[in-house]
């Protein structure tokens, strides 16, 4: 007995063996499984509550009835509505990026410009887009242009603010290195400042892409003859509540897909800009 204890004490202390996780814990560790389970649970509770408490469908239709709302419209009409909203959202989103990044660069470059225009940006951001949308439509007619402008207005503030912050967050040593090399300023921006701003730009891109869908829908509420926002408004006015809910579900899915697309772009082309996984 004493021999064995001497041997074991002279060798390295034994690794503490963690308790084996239960089957349930291990199954739930699979990525995406837990949110899927909770989602299904909530839909199930929703469905059962509607049946159990006899909730009228104009207050809250059961998920099964919403699914029925999809059938009321042919698939080609659906695609037409989806494309109507998606096109405006995407054009507005990319136009907004094209405007916001040069503005952010000039704001970061010049304290004077920043002092002169920053308050104006805040004013633009403080203007409720829903309130300004009808005014813009009156001014710019009922084509795509006013809808794109509305989408731009709602998406562009987070992009400008976040990109400017990112451009200013560059390590000062690298700016000194750039100055000590007497490199042209545009290379300081393209080779140092913009890449360092990438994490900031992507966090704004993620926010703005969902905002762009909101912008497109708000524009459709005011004036449109297709699009998901139009569909929802049209359906409610006709008291087709299930159909309106179906439109809402498609809108949510569109936002989610767009958001995940931005996440995927960052993961594929800018993996170094992601927060470290511990």
């Amino acid at each position: 007995m004493s021999d064995t204890s001497a041997v074991s004490s002279s060798s390295a202390p034994p690794e503490p063996v963690p308790p084996r996780p239960s089957v349930l814990t291990r199954a739930l560790a699979a990525p995406g499984l837990l949110p899927a389970v909770s989602f299904i649970a909530i839909v199930a509770i929703w469905e059962i509550s509607c049946l159990l408490f006899n909730i009228p469908s104009y207050i809250l239709p059961a998920p099964s009835r919403i699914a029925g709302g999809f059938d009321a419209i042919p698939i080609t009409r659906w695609l037409d509505h989806v494309w109507g909203t998606l096109r405006v959202a995407l054009i507005g989103y990319f136009a907004s990026i094209a405007i916001a990044i040069p503005i952010a660069i000039s704001l970061a470059r010049s304290e004077l410009l920043s002092r002169a225009f920053y308050p104006m940006l805040v004013v633009v951001q403080s203007t409720p887009v829903v309130a300004i949308a009808p005014i813009i439509i009156v001014g710019l007619g009922s084509g795509d242009l006013p809808r794109v402008v509305i989408t731009c207005l709602i998406t562009f503030f987070p992009l400008v603010v976040s990109t400017t912050t990112g451009l200013m967050a560059t390590p000062p040593e690298l700016i000194e290195l750039s100055r000590s090399l007497r490199a042209p300023v545009w290379r300081e921006i393209t080779q140092i400042r913009l890449p360092f701003a990438i994490p900031y730009i992507f966090s704004a891109l993620k926010i703005s892409v969902t905002l762009s869908v909101i912008g497109a829908v708000v524009a459709e509420f005011v004036a449109a003859d297709k699009g998901l926002g139009y569909l929802i408004q049209f359906s409610t006015s006709m008291f087709k509540i299930q159909q309106a809910w179906a439109g809402l579900v498609v809108l949510v899915l569109m936002s989610l897909v767009l958001f995940q697309a931005v996440v995927a772009v960052q993961r594929i082309w800018f993996p170094w800009s992601l927060p470290k996984e511990k």
Partner: peptide, 25 residues
Amino acid sequence: IVFQRPTLLPWASIEDNVVFPVRHK
């Protein structure tokens, strides 16, 4: 110049970081 912090470019390989002065200039 060598700074207190290494301040390398996190997206560039080690070799690209060393040649950075000439690329930048």
